[in-house]
Design a binder for these strands. Structure first.
Length: 432
RNA sequence: GGUGGCGUGUCCGAGCGGCCUAAGGAGCACGCCUCGAAAGCGUGUGUGGGUGCAAGCCCACCGUGGGUUCAAAUCCCACCGCCACCGCCA
């Protein structure tokens, strides 16, 4: 949720932010009107309630005829109070509902525009030139079959389209990547976590995944539980309704979890292979910081991702996502995109977002700062950030395709070897 | 899934229809005392919202949501969570 004070004090800024994302600024006026209605409803309720309270006190202290007279007067009042209370609750709900639809205003620095208006911040490494080496690279589906690492046909048989089995070396790769990622995160000060992946609506809504993004989310039939699309959800909700002592910030968590996505609206996109799937495992970094520190923390998360991709010896570029392509909750987002040889283009492997106080306001997470309100102390909103360390299928795609050799084997990056029983090469196996 | 018990402020804990504006204690902050500290004494000590230039004033909050009542922390219902036992299960 955006800062309600910002909305009231500087609505033009929110209007501009809406336009920058390519959205209509109309919601801002809707929200302002709802706020107006809400406040007059509150004033009316408090007036009636105050009257009722003082009458109640008199009733308690008198008796007999006097009491009867007062009782008569207060009976009608009681109904009015009830009505005013309902009106107030309704007005508050309406106001909140509008606020929830307003995305986090994009950062000044975020490029304006939609999906294609990103800025490339840097290129790291050089895409491998297979023509110079004299062979045609195989795609990850072929390589996965040769290595006995990915079984897409049986995934479809058992679970449907966009499902897969990781088998043999593929399963080994997942375990190796997860362990290696967790080791890196732990060394960088992140607390390892294995969170629940079924969550209540509150956690979903609080992280901004229940609005227009809702059709990408699986809901459990008849249970009021959702399957998370990322462990960002349980990690953000982890501290919901808590006041964290500012001295304990930043708090850094790294979670391993499965992720479930309907991928609605992506029919026909990436239908081959395991680039876009309904389920995958992921190690996600998550941080709680002060608002001021969130910007440097965002860079820190990006640095972790770059270190990770470097260890996997992948060629990639870093992009600054355009405002229109930010999720509801992000204020700025950097994606690391690795070069996929058989697609001839860069594909997103990791992504890190600064959500500032957008999620913490929705989830009632605040920090207790030393000092009094006057000198910026007291209880104030804090920031959340998230960043992918490793999303398994896409990372496996990049590794297999990038490090393949002419005979269909795949070279294992040096940093990964200790996690793969010291194997330097993954060799093709007989089909089964 | 069943039965029973319990959810009160930062924490412990009392209250079980109207002086609850929530007792008492602990903790914390400040002050007194002290060479300094402890002990002791005194004062203060939440969150959200409305209103006001401000000091302040007002409203809401006793797990959550309904209900009864002129009036609910207190009575009734539902739900959630915790604890214990039973059943089931990995």
């Amino acid at each position: 949720m955006i800062d309600p004070r910002l909305l009231r004090d500087d609505p033009d800024r929110i209007r501009d932010a809406q336009v920058k994302r390519g959205l209509s600024a109309g919601v801002v006026d809707e929200a302002l009107a709802a706020d107006e209605r809400r406040r007059s409803a509150i004033v009316e309720f408090e007036r009636l309630r105050g009257e009722q309270k003082s009458l109640g006190k008199q009733i308690a202290s008198v008796s007999g005829e006097q009491k009867q007279a007062l009782l008569e007067r207060t009976k009608g009042l009681s109904a009015e109070v009830k009505k005013a209370e309902a009106a107030q609750a309704e007005a508050e709900d309406a106001y909140r509902a509008v606020l929830l639809t307003i995305p986090n205003p994009a950062a000044e620095e975020a490029p304006a525009g939609g999906e294609d208006d990103y800025t490339v911040l840097e290129h790291v490494g050089t895409p491998r030139d297979f023509s110079a080496e004299g062979f045609e690279p195989l795609d990850h589906v072929e390589l996965g079959r040769l290595l006995g690492a990915i079984d897409i046909d049986r995934g479809a048989k058992v679970s449907g389209a966009r499902f897969y089995y990781l088998t043999g070396a593929g399963a080994d790769l997942e375990m190796a990547l997860v362990t290696m990622a967790m080791d890196q995160a732990r060394a960088a000060g992140f607390t390892p976590m294995v969170p629940p992946t079924l969550v209540k609506p509150r956690a979903m809504e609080g992280t901004g995944f229940l609005g227009q993004a809702a059709d990408d989310v699986y809901r459990i039939d008849g249970e009021d539980l959702y399957l998370v699309g990322t462990s960002e959800v349980p990690l953000a909700a982890y501290h919901s309704d808590e006041i964290l002592d500012a001295s304990t910030l930043p708090r850094r968590y790294a979670a391993f979890s499965p992720c479930f996505r309907k991928e609605a609206g992506s029919y026909g996109k990436d239908t081959r292979g395991i680039i876009r799937v309904h389920w995958f495992d992921k190690v996600e970094m998550f941080a709680y910081t002060t608002l001021e520190d969130s910007f440097s923390e965002h860079r820190r998360l990006l640095a972790q991702e770059k270190e990770w991709l470097g260890k996997l010896e992948l060629a990639y570029r870093v992009i600054d996502t355009a405002a229109g392509d930010l999720g509801l909750s992000a204020q700025r987002k950097f994606d690391c995109e690795a070069w996929i040889p058989t697609q001839g283009r860069y594909r997103e492997l990791t992504s890190t977002s600064n959500c500032t106080d957008f999620q913490t306001r929705r989830l009632d997470i605040r920090g207790r700062f030393p000092g009094s309100d006057g000198d910026t102390g007291g209880v104030r909103p804090i920031a959340t950030l998230n960043g992918t360390l490793v999303a398994i299928p896409r990372t496996i795609v990049a590794i297999l395709e990038t490090h393949q050799q002419a005979d269909g084997s795949v070279r294992v990056p040096a940093a990964l070897q200790p996690y793969l029983q010291g194997r330097e090469v993954l060799e093709p196996v007989a089909a089964r």
